[in-house]
Nucleic acid binder design. Structure first.
Length: 98
DNA sequence: CCCCTGACGCTAA
DNA sequence: GTTAGCGCCAGGG
């Protein structure tokens, strides 16, 4: 199985939309829930067409946003009450369970 | 077809 | 705490 189906892409979008305000998820968790073999695919979906999604609630497993998004993502999260310490979000407490 | 670039993740050192 | 290496996979040149 190598091809990414449209259903999987739609599922990724639906899953992300389902993350509640004030909570976050990770690329890996979304990938697993959508049945994808690689977290990169989730990043790909968001990069290609994620502007209409709450993409800021998706973080790397490290809890630290990719450098080019660092400022904006943390700002959006802060606006929802998700605070970061040293640019890092505490996934242990804020991670959403699918 | 080969090579490179990513909004990634895990392990080892 | 850090860096390096590998696996992963879609697209573009």
């Amino acid at each position: 199985m190598g091809a990414v189906t449209d259903e999987q892409v739609e599922l990724v979008r639906a899953l992300i939309i389902g993350v509640p305000v004030g909570r976050v998820t990770t690329y890996g968790d979304v990938a697993a829930a959508a049945g994808l073999s690689s977290a990169r695919i989730v990043g790909w979906v968001l990069r290609i067409d994620g502007s209409d999604l709450p993409w800021h609630r998706v973080l790397p497993a490290s809890g630290r946003p990719a450098s080019h998004l660092h400022t904006e993502q943390l700002e959006r999260l802060r606006a929802e009450g998700v605070l970061a310490v040293d640019g890092k979000v505490d996934l242990r407490t804020l991670r959403h369970q699918f």
